[in-house]
Amino acid sequence: MPYALRRTGQAALVVAATFVLAFLLLHALPGDAIVARYASPELGLTEAQLDQLRLVYGTDQPVWVQLWQSAAGFLSGDLGTSLQNGAAVESLLAAALPATVALASLGFLVAVLLACGVAVAATFSSAEWLRRAFRSLPPLFVSVPVFWLGIVLLQVFSFQLGLIPVINANPVEALVLPVLTIAVPIAAPLAQVLIRSIDDTVAEPFIAVARARGAGPRWLLSKEVARNSLLPTLTIAGVLFGELIAGAVVTETVFARTGLGRLTVDAVATRDTPVLQAIVVISAVGFVAINLAVDLVAPAIDPRLRKAVHA
Protein backbone atom coordinates (compact mmCIF):
# COMPACT_ATOMS: atom_id res chain seq x y z
CA MET A 1 0.00 0.00 0.00
CA PRO A 2 2.22 2.85 -1.21
CA TYR A 3 -0.45 5.50 -0.59
CA ALA A 4 -0.80 4.65 3.10
CA LEU A 5 2.97 4.61 3.48
CA ARG A 6 3.48 7.92 1.71
CA ARG A 7 0.66 9.56 3.67
CA THR A 8 2.09 8.27 6.98
CA GLY A 9 5.55 9.54 6.08
CA GLN A 10 4.08 12.95 5.28
CA ALA A 11 2.32 13.03 8.65
CA ALA A 12 5.54 12.11 10.47
CA LEU A 13 7.33 14.90 8.62
CA VAL A 14 4.72 17.47 9.69
CA VAL A 15 4.99 16.32 13.30
CA ALA A 16 8.78 16.62 13.21
CA ALA A 17 8.59 20.07 11.62
CA THR A 18 6.03 21.16 14.22
CA PHE A 19 8.40 20.06 16.96
CA VAL A 20 11.25 22.10 15.49
CA LEU A 21 9.04 25.15 14.97
CA ALA A 22 7.61 24.99 18.50
CA PHE A 23 11.10 24.57 19.92
CA LEU A 24 12.58 27.48 17.97
CA LEU A 25 9.55 29.71 18.59
CA LEU A 26 9.56 29.16 22.34
CA HIS A 27 13.34 29.23 22.73
CA ALA A 28 13.81 32.39 20.72
CA LEU A 29 12.74 34.33 23.80
CA PRO A 30 14.76 37.44 24.56
CA GLY A 31 17.37 36.40 27.09
CA ASP A 32 17.23 32.81 28.22
CA ALA A 33 14.56 31.19 30.34
CA ILE A 34 16.89 30.98 33.35
CA VAL A 35 17.42 34.74 33.42
CA ALA A 36 13.69 35.30 33.03
CA ARG A 37 12.96 32.98 35.92
CA TYR A 38 15.81 33.40 38.41
CA ALA A 39 17.57 36.71 37.75
CA SER A 40 15.14 38.83 39.75
CA PRO A 41 17.04 40.84 42.40
CA GLU A 42 14.97 39.52 45.31
CA LEU A 43 16.32 36.00 44.77
CA GLY A 44 19.82 37.45 45.05
CA LEU A 45 21.50 34.75 42.98
CA THR A 46 25.03 35.45 41.80
CA GLU A 47 26.12 35.09 38.20
CA ALA A 48 27.97 31.88 39.13
CA GLN A 49 24.83 30.38 40.63
CA LEU A 50 22.88 31.32 37.50
CA ASP A 51 25.52 29.52 35.45
CA GLN A 52 25.03 26.45 37.61
CA LEU A 53 21.29 26.60 37.00
CA ARG A 54 21.97 26.86 33.27
CA LEU A 55 24.07 23.74 33.57
CA VAL A 56 21.26 21.92 35.39
CA TYR A 57 18.61 22.91 32.84
CA GLY A 58 21.00 22.49 29.92
CA THR A 59 20.48 26.00 28.60
CA ASP A 60 24.24 26.63 28.39
CA GLN A 61 24.42 24.43 25.30
CA PRO A 62 24.06 25.79 21.76
CA VAL A 63 20.49 25.79 20.42
CA TRP A 64 20.89 22.83 18.07
CA VAL A 65 22.26 20.65 20.89
CA GLN A 66 19.27 21.59 23.03
CA LEU A 67 16.96 20.84 20.12
CA TRP A 68 18.53 17.42 19.73
CA GLN A 69 18.34 16.66 23.46
CA SER A 70 14.73 17.84 23.61
CA ALA A 71 13.77 15.71 20.60
CA ALA A 72 15.45 12.64 22.05
CA GLY A 73 13.62 13.30 25.33
CA PHE A 74 10.24 13.59 23.59
CA LEU A 75 10.80 10.31 21.78
CA SER A 76 11.60 8.53 25.04
CA GLY A 77 8.67 10.11 26.91
CA ASP A 78 10.67 12.74 28.80
CA LEU A 79 8.92 16.00 27.97
CA GLY A 80 11.24 18.24 29.97
CA THR A 81 11.03 20.11 33.25
CA SER A 82 8.66 22.91 34.18
CA LEU A 83 10.55 26.16 34.77
CA GLN A 84 7.88 27.24 37.21
CA ASN A 85 7.97 24.46 39.79
CA GLY A 86 10.64 22.02 38.60
CA ALA A 87 8.13 19.20 38.12
CA ALA A 88 8.44 16.81 35.17
CA VAL A 89 6.19 18.08 32.36
CA GLU A 90 4.84 14.60 31.63
CA SER A 91 3.59 14.21 35.20
CA LEU A 92 1.93 17.65 35.07
CA LEU A 93 0.19 16.63 31.84
CA ALA A 94 -0.82 13.23 33.23
CA ALA A 95 -2.37 14.90 36.28
CA ALA A 96 -4.31 17.41 34.16
CA LEU A 97 -5.40 15.03 31.40
CA PRO A 98 -8.33 13.07 32.98
CA ALA A 99 -10.39 16.16 33.82
CA THR A 100 -9.95 17.58 30.32
CA VAL A 101 -10.65 14.26 28.61
CA ALA A 102 -13.91 13.95 30.56
CA LEU A 103 -14.92 17.51 29.66
CA ALA A 104 -13.89 17.26 26.02
CA SER A 105 -15.40 13.84 25.30
CA LEU A 106 -18.73 14.70 26.92
CA GLY A 107 -18.69 18.07 25.15
CA PHE A 108 -18.01 16.35 21.85
CA LEU A 109 -20.86 13.90 22.41
CA VAL A 110 -23.32 16.70 23.21
CA ALA A 111 -22.05 18.65 20.20
CA VAL A 112 -22.66 15.72 17.86
CA LEU A 113 -26.22 15.26 19.16
CA LEU A 114 -26.85 19.01 18.93
CA ALA A 115 -25.42 19.25 15.41
CA CYS A 116 -27.39 16.25 14.13
CA GLY A 117 -30.58 17.64 15.65
CA VAL A 118 -30.06 21.07 14.12
CA ALA A 119 -29.07 19.63 10.73
CA VAL A 120 -32.07 17.30 10.48
CA ALA A 121 -34.45 20.04 11.64
CA ALA A 122 -32.91 22.46 9.15
CA THR A 123 -33.39 20.11 6.20
CA PHE A 124 -36.40 17.93 7.03
CA SER A 125 -38.77 20.28 8.90
CA SER A 126 -42.07 20.60 7.12
CA ALA A 127 -42.42 24.36 7.53
CA GLU A 128 -40.21 26.67 5.46
CA TRP A 129 -39.79 29.20 8.29
CA LEU A 130 -38.72 26.45 10.69
CA ARG A 131 -36.04 25.24 8.26
CA ARG A 132 -34.80 28.80 7.87
CA ALA A 133 -34.69 29.32 11.63
CA PHE A 134 -32.62 26.19 12.17
CA ARG A 135 -30.34 27.08 9.26
CA SER A 136 -29.48 30.38 10.92
CA LEU A 137 -28.40 28.67 14.14
CA PRO A 138 -24.87 27.52 13.09
CA PRO A 139 -23.74 30.98 11.92
CA LEU A 140 -25.09 32.36 15.20
CA PHE A 141 -23.24 29.74 17.26
CA VAL A 142 -19.99 30.55 15.44
CA SER A 143 -20.29 34.24 16.24
CA VAL A 144 -20.78 33.96 19.99
CA PRO A 145 -17.66 34.35 22.16
CA VAL A 146 -17.27 31.02 24.00
CA PHE A 147 -16.11 32.60 27.25
CA TRP A 148 -19.13 34.89 27.22
CA LEU A 149 -21.47 31.98 26.60
CA GLY A 150 -20.03 30.20 29.66
CA ILE A 151 -20.57 33.23 31.87
CA VAL A 152 -24.13 33.73 30.60
CA LEU A 153 -24.98 30.06 31.21
CA LEU A 154 -23.59 30.41 34.72
CA GLN A 155 -25.65 33.54 35.22
CA VAL A 156 -28.91 32.01 34.03
CA PHE A 157 -28.73 28.45 35.39
CA SER A 158 -26.84 29.04 38.62
CA PHE A 159 -27.72 32.55 39.73
CA GLN A 160 -31.15 33.25 38.28
CA LEU A 161 -32.79 29.83 38.10
CA GLY A 162 -30.70 28.30 40.88
CA LEU A 163 -30.69 24.94 39.13
CA ILE A 164 -26.98 24.25 39.54
CA PRO A 165 -25.26 25.18 42.78
CA VAL A 166 -22.19 27.41 42.48
CA ILE A 167 -20.59 26.09 45.65
CA ASN A 168 -20.41 22.44 46.67
CA ALA A 169 -21.70 21.15 43.35
CA ASN A 170 -21.25 17.39 42.94
CA PRO A 171 -18.97 16.30 40.08
CA VAL A 172 -21.89 15.71 37.72
CA GLU A 173 -23.53 19.06 38.43
CA ALA A 174 -20.16 20.78 38.05
CA LEU A 175 -19.78 19.31 34.55
CA VAL A 176 -23.17 20.31 33.08
CA LEU A 177 -22.48 23.96 32.23
CA PRO A 178 -18.84 23.49 31.10
CA VAL A 179 -19.93 20.65 28.79
CA LEU A 180 -22.68 22.82 27.28
CA THR A 181 -20.20 25.69 26.85
CA ILE A 182 -17.58 23.60 25.06
CA ALA A 183 -20.23 21.86 22.92
CA VAL A 184 -21.48 24.99 21.14
CA PRO A 185 -18.30 25.93 19.20
CA ILE A 186 -17.94 22.27 18.16
CA ALA A 187 -21.58 21.86 17.16
CA ALA A 188 -21.61 24.95 14.94
CA PRO A 189 -19.13 23.88 12.21
CA LEU A 190 -20.35 20.29 12.46
CA ALA A 191 -23.97 21.34 11.84
CA GLN A 192 -22.86 23.58 8.97
CA VAL A 193 -21.07 20.75 7.20
CA LEU A 194 -23.93 18.33 7.91
CA ILE A 195 -26.57 20.68 6.49
CA ARG A 196 -24.50 21.26 3.34
CA SER A 197 -23.88 17.56 2.81
CA ILE A 198 -27.52 16.62 3.43
CA ASP A 199 -28.48 19.26 0.84
CA ASP A 200 -26.02 17.71 -1.62
CA THR A 201 -27.22 14.18 -0.94
CA VAL A 202 -30.90 15.08 -1.28
CA ALA A 203 -30.17 16.52 -4.73
CA GLU A 204 -28.69 13.18 -5.92
CA PRO A 205 -30.66 11.17 -8.47
CA PHE A 206 -30.90 8.07 -6.26
CA ILE A 207 -32.92 10.07 -3.71
CA ALA A 208 -35.36 11.08 -6.43
CA VAL A 209 -35.64 7.41 -7.37
CA ALA A 210 -36.29 6.38 -3.77
CA ARG A 211 -38.90 9.14 -3.47
CA ALA A 212 -40.58 8.07 -6.67
CA ARG A 213 -40.82 4.57 -5.28
CA GLY A 214 -42.72 5.94 -2.32
CA ALA A 215 -40.13 6.48 0.40
CA GLY A 216 -41.24 8.86 3.16
CA PRO A 217 -38.95 11.43 4.78
CA ARG A 218 -38.14 9.22 7.77
CA TRP A 219 -37.16 6.25 5.60
CA LEU A 220 -35.15 8.53 3.30
CA LEU A 221 -33.26 10.04 6.21
CA SER A 222 -32.38 6.81 7.98
CA LYS A 223 -31.71 4.56 4.97
CA GLU A 224 -30.39 6.86 2.25
CA VAL A 225 -29.32 10.29 3.45
CA ALA A 226 -27.64 9.62 6.78
CA ARG A 227 -25.00 7.21 5.49
CA ASN A 228 -24.14 9.38 2.52
CA SER A 229 -24.02 12.65 4.43
CA LEU A 230 -21.79 11.56 7.27
CA LEU A 231 -18.56 11.14 5.31
CA PRO A 232 -17.96 14.87 4.62
CA THR A 233 -18.09 15.52 8.36
CA LEU A 234 -15.02 13.30 8.81
CA THR A 235 -12.96 15.82 6.87
CA ILE A 236 -13.37 18.44 9.62
CA ALA A 237 -12.53 16.01 12.44
CA GLY A 238 -9.04 17.51 12.82
CA VAL A 239 -10.39 21.04 12.94
CA LEU A 240 -12.90 19.99 15.60
CA PHE A 241 -10.07 18.52 17.66
CA GLY A 242 -8.37 21.93 17.62
CA GLU A 243 -11.65 23.57 18.59
CA LEU A 244 -11.97 21.15 21.52
CA ILE A 245 -8.54 22.15 22.82
CA ALA A 246 -9.25 25.87 22.43
CA GLY A 247 -12.64 25.26 24.04
CA ALA A 248 -10.99 23.50 26.98
CA VAL A 249 -8.62 26.45 27.53
CA VAL A 250 -11.50 28.93 27.64
CA THR A 251 -14.03 26.76 29.47
CA GLU A 252 -11.63 25.69 32.21
CA THR A 253 -10.73 29.33 32.78
CA VAL A 254 -14.35 30.47 32.97
CA PHE A 255 -15.44 27.71 35.34
CA ALA A 256 -12.15 27.60 37.29
CA ARG A 257 -11.67 23.89 36.56
CA THR A 258 -8.33 22.11 36.57
CA GLY A 259 -7.10 20.47 33.40
CA LEU A 260 -4.93 20.88 30.33
CA GLY A 261 -6.50 24.20 29.40
CA ARG A 262 -5.83 25.65 32.80
CA LEU A 263 -2.25 24.31 32.61
CA THR A 264 -1.85 26.08 29.26
CA VAL A 265 -3.12 29.39 30.57
CA ASP A 266 -0.81 29.19 33.59
CA ALA A 267 2.15 28.25 31.38
CA VAL A 268 1.57 31.30 29.19
CA ALA A 269 1.15 33.63 32.17
CA THR A 270 4.42 32.46 33.74
CA ARG A 271 6.24 31.93 30.42
CA ASP A 272 6.76 28.30 31.31
CA THR A 273 7.97 27.37 27.83
CA PRO A 274 8.66 23.62 28.33
CA VAL A 275 5.06 23.03 29.43
CA LEU A 276 3.66 25.07 26.54
CA GLN A 277 5.97 23.35 24.05
CA ALA A 278 4.80 19.91 25.20
CA ILE A 279 1.13 20.93 24.92
CA VAL A 280 1.63 22.43 21.45
CA VAL A 281 3.51 19.38 20.14
CA ILE A 282 1.04 16.87 21.61
CA SER A 283 -1.93 18.80 20.17
CA ALA A 284 -0.27 18.84 16.75
CA VAL A 285 0.35 15.09 16.99
CA GLY A 286 -3.35 14.62 17.79
CA PHE A 287 -4.42 16.77 14.84
CA VAL A 288 -2.08 15.04 12.40
CA ALA A 289 -3.03 11.56 13.66
CA ILE A 290 -6.76 12.28 13.30
CA ASN A 291 -6.34 13.59 9.77
CA LEU A 292 -4.15 10.63 8.85
CA ALA A 293 -6.73 8.20 10.23
CA VAL A 294 -9.52 9.94 8.29
CA ASP A 295 -7.51 9.84 5.05
CA LEU A 296 -6.75 6.16 5.48
CA VAL A 297 -10.23 5.12 6.63
CA ALA A 298 -12.33 7.21 4.21
CA PRO A 299 -11.69 4.99 1.15
CA ALA A 300 -12.78 1.96 3.19
CA ILE A 301 -16.09 3.65 3.99
CA ASP A 302 -16.74 5.20 0.58
CA PRO A 303 -15.82 3.04 -2.43
CA ARG A 304 -15.98 6.11 -4.69
CA LEU A 305 -12.78 7.43 -3.06
CA ARG A 306 -10.75 4.31 -3.80
CA LYS A 307 -10.17 5.17 -7.41
CA ALA A 308 -9.03 8.67 -6.61
CA VAL A 309 -6.52 7.33 -4.11
CA HIS A 310 -4.84 5.00 -6.55
CA ALA A 311 -4.83 7.47 -9.39
Binding site: V15, A17, L21, A22, V268, F287
Partner: peptide
Protein backbone atom coordinates in the same frame (compact mmCIF):
# COMPACT_ATOMS: atom_id res chain seq x y z
CA UNK B 1 3.43 24.12 1.88
CA UNK B 2 4.85 21.84 4.60
CA UNK B 3 5.38 24.96 6.73
CA UNK B 4 1.75 25.80 6.06
CA UNK B 5 0.80 22.25 7.16
CA UNK B 6 2.65 22.83 10.42
CA UNK B 7 0.80 26.10 11.02
CA UNK B 8 -2.48 24.28 10.40
CA UNK B 9 -1.54 21.38 12.68
CA UNK B 10 -1.21 23.54 15.79
CA UNK B 11 -4.67 24.49 17.14
CA UNK B 12 -5.23 28.21 16.50
CA UNK B 13 -5.47 29.31 20.10
CA UNK B 14 -2.29 27.42 21.08
CA UNK B 15 -0.41 28.94 18.14
CA UNK B 16 -1.59 32.41 19.15
CA UNK B 17 -0.55 31.78 22.76
CA UNK B 18 2.91 30.59 21.65
CA UNK B 19 3.40 33.77 19.63
CA UNK B 20 2.26 35.82 22.64
CA UNK B 21 4.81 34.08 24.87
CA UNK B 22 7.41 35.02 22.26
Amino acid sequence: MRIVDVLLAIPGLLLALSVIVL
